[in-house]
Write a protein that binds this DNA or RNA. Structure first.
Length: 446
RNA sequence: GCGAUUGUAGCUCAGUUGGUUAGAGCACCAGGUUGUGAUCCUGGGGGUCGGGGGGUCGAGUCCCCUCAGUCGCCCCA
């Protein structure tokens, strides 16, 4: 059974996966921490679901075509088909549907978990990645849309990104439908046209016209689309909307209300309306938005929108919902591009990973080290000591420094030590070792 | 699913038209000097050259297959 090639599977990580050594894992934890802190600050509660689901959960929404994009499997000897989760929304919809009657309105949930997709890896895309999901369930107001976007902006800002670095491109499918209807598009043409609009900038004008004809659009329709695009290039999308639609602009003014919410909260400088942001997914029903790096050199950092019919699809009561997802892969690339990934020392500081004290022995005191470290640990301190055999103080201080320790404790004798603050370089000699804990300030995790 | 390109130590890389026992820097371990994050000196471990096959007197080097990385196409929840 074993072929020679099986050997390579043993020694290499599967395609599109990552090994996280301590430094890489610290960077990942740092991002997760920022996601979590931001979500909590914005009033969201953390949830999680199973890492794998019944395969049907994904085909219900996306059709059988999705299966080739999934890692799906059956238990040996079993019939049921499962799939590693490729996204969170179906799980969220299932969970929301199951408790629909007891959930407060709105319900605000976030999650941070790994996802799996059987695609070929390339820049910004892996087969296993982390995603942050943020959703507001049971609130159909455009303010809820704005609240999601605000949370997203709050995160970007906490990383040191500015509106010069990233842009939130916002659109609304209801408004788009209004425009298309006013442009004399028949109802059955609207949905395919929206999907096509999402690809408009990625294909040539001729291809766009050809694809449009394929779905049944006339030259008149295509010309109208072109005219709308020319207008949006020069002026505010909302003005164009009013000009194009006139009196037929709906009372609810969905896009305008979301824009107002963000403007009132001082967040509009991060955003722009964008007629080409439609998102390929059919299930979006209202607001849609994407976060892009401003030069467009990377894939979308995040994307989301309103999906008011989805929870019904999972046998819940009619429940409006809006949310977005952000992956760690593109985000990390953008942070690196911008030089905003903090140093390892800063990360250790932010995550509370810095040792409080690094114990350095001399030849005479080395037999005391492990006992002292054990005592310090019992006191609640993060204490480390060298495992090297050298007693060269310079080398050991360097080791303490590489570990990002806050203090070095040089054990001079049975009872006396020197305590050196490795951040300031100041040191205090002739300290009674049993008083050392008091000299070392409690850990500052903030 | 398709295409381009790459693969030599943990990392970054050298390795001549195919020719002894495959190298360097950094990192790691150890020893020494100066008791303070430094500098310097010495030594060491670590490679089946991604894997398999072919051909050759002889392959890290040439040929085929395969795995993986990178980039792109398709797709992108």
């Amino acid at each position: 059974m074993a072929t020679p090639n099986d050997k390579t599977h043993v020694f290499q990580a599967p395609k599109g996966t990552r090994d996280f050594y301590p430094l890489e894992l610290a960077r990942r934890r740092w991002i997760e921490d920022k996601w979590r802190q931001t979500s909590i600050r914005h009033g969201f509660d953390e949830i999680d679901g199973p890492t794998f689901e019944h395969l049907d959960l994904y085909t219900v929404k996306s059709g059988d075509g999705i299966v080739s994009e999934l890692f799906s499997f059956t238990r040996e000897g079993g019939d049921k088909r499962y799939a590693l989760r490729p996204e969170f929304t179906p799980t969220l919809a299932r969970m929301a549907a199951a408790r629909a009657n007891s959930l407060p309105k709105p319900t605000k949930w976030f999650s941070i978990c790994p996802y799996f997709r059987a695609e070929n890896p390339q820049r910004g895309r892996l087969r296993e990645f982390l995603q942050w999901n943020v959703d507001v369930i049971g609130d159909d107001s455009p303010e809820a849309d704005g609240e999601c976007i605000a949370c997203c902006i709050g995160f970007l800002e906490s990383l040191g990104l500015t509106p010069n670095d990233v842009t939130i491109k916002i659109n609304n499918r209801v408004d788009m439908e209004t425009i298309l209807t006013a442009s004399k598009f028949p109802e059955e043409l609207i949905e395919p046209m929206l999907v096509l609009l999402d690809r408009r900038l990625k294909i040539t004008k001729e291809q766009f016209a050809e694809e449009s004809r394929k779905i049944g659009a006339t030259d008149d329709h295509i010309n109208r689309i072109e005219r709308i695009h020319k207008l949006t290039g020069r002026s505010n999308f909302l003005d164009v909307l009013r000009d194009t639609v006139g009196d037929k602009y709906p009372e609810t003014r969905p896009l305008e209300t979301t824009v107002d919410f963000l403007t009132k909260n001082g967040l509009w400088e991060w955003c722009e309306t964008d007629i080409d942001t439609v998102r390929g997914l059919a299930y979006y029903t209202g607001t849609v938005f994407e976060v892009h790096e401003t030069t467009g050199s990377e894939r979308a950092i995040a994307g989301g929108g309103r999906y008011d019919k989805l929870i019904e699809l999972f046998n819940g009561p009619p429940t409006p919902a809006v949310g977005f997802a952000m992956g760690d892969v593109v985000l990390s690339l953008v942070l690196q591009d911008k030089g905003l990934m903090p140093t390892d020392e800063q990360i250790a500081q932010d995550l509370g990973l810095r040792p409080d004290v690094y114990v350095i022995p001399t030849t005479e005191t080395e037999h005391l080290v492990k006992t002292l470290v054990a005592q310090l640990r019992r006191e609640g301190l993060h204490a480390r000591h060298t495992y090297k055999s050298t007693r060269n103080v310079g080398k050991l201080l360097k080791e303490a420094n590489n570990a990002h320790a806050r203090f070095a404790l040089i054990l001079e004798s049975d009872t006396i030590c020197t305590i050196k603050d490795l951040d300031s370089g100041e040191q205090e000699e002739n300290v009674a070792t049993d008083k050392a804990v008091a000299r070392i300030a409690p850990p500052t995790t903030e």
